[in-house]
């Protein structure tokens, strides 16, 4: 109990983060090597889409990460608003640019896939539009967290936005069920067996793991930078306010 709690202390995290980060980084590189090999060389083309199916191995994990990271940020923001753990907010703030990146990539790869398969880059159907809203929520969160002169006010406002915006996540997930859309429904998270053949499921899962590894890797790095810069700032303030001592 004491040990688990001590990881919530920023200082403790700072001393252990470097070691974890190195190992997670190595693991991520291995996962990317395996995932990219399987996705581009070691997997068959699709019976309908041909080679275009390979875009899915990037597109689907990106979309999962976009929604997963948003949920992560929303939960941490709620924890920050309720219990005022500063670390929760630092984690959320550090994860946001990564989430925005994954959302942008899923929209971009989706458009690249949509043109040859559907016959259009973009349509305003419920799925595509709700994911675009997710990108704007990320950008709004990032903008608000820097908007006010007082850091605490900015972080509070941004956390409220993150919690409120969480309503969009179930809308994205079930948009393809609730409304008629151009986007196809889920292949994996459905009650019947996955509608994706095992030879395509394995590269997809390898890529998804690689993306998760990448997220944790970069998140730890960003949190470390935040904590170190906060420490430096505190030290500078201390030096400035220290009364001048005469040395004899």
């Amino acid at each position: 109990m004491i040990k688990a709690h001590s990881y919530l202390q920023p200082n403790h995290l700072l001393t252990h983060a470097t070691r974890w980060r190195l190992w997670i980084g190595r693991l991520t590189l291995c996962l990317f090597a395996i995932g990219l090999y399987l996705a581009f060389i070691g997997s068959p083309p699709d019976y309908q889409q041909g080679e275009t199916v390979r875009i899915m191995y990037v597109h689907v994990p990106c979309a999962w990460m976009a929604m997963g990271i948003y949920s992560f940020i929303a939960i941490l923001s709620a924890i920050f608003l309720i219990w005022k753990y500063p670390l929760a907010c630092i984690l959320a703030r550090s994860a946001a640019p990564l989430g925005a990146l994954f959302t942008f990539l899923s929209l971009l790869t989706g458009a690249l896939w949509g043109k040859p398969m559907w016959g259009t880059w973009w349509v305003w159907d419920a799925r595509l539009t709700s994911v675009l809203i997710l990108l704007f929520l990320y950008l709004g969160y990032l903008a608000i967290s820097e908007a006010f002169e007082d850091t605490q006010t900015s972080l509070n406002a941004a956390s409220v936005l993150a919690v409120v915006g969480f309503i969009n996540v179930p809308i994205i997930k079930w948009s393809v069920v609730w409304w008629t859309t151009l986007h196809q429904p889920a292949s994996i998270t459905r009650i019947a067996a996955p509608a994706i053949h095992i030879s395509m499921l394995i590269p997809l899962m390898a890529m998804a793991l690689a993306f998760i590894g990448y997220f944790i890797w970069v998140l730890l790095l960003r949190v470390q930078i935040q904590l170190i810069s906060a420490k430096t700032h505190a030290l500078q303030l201390k030096l400035i306010h220290q009364p001048f001592k005469k040395t004899t």
Binding site: P44, D46, Q49, V53
Partner: peptide, 18 residues
């Protein structure tokens, strides 16, 4: 004035489909 193809959620290699 425009035709879009709707893709389904099934993904499989051509041999499996055959």
């Amino acid at each position: 004035i425009s035709v879009l193809a709707k893709h389904d959620e099934n993904y499989m290699p051509p041999q499996v489909e055959k």
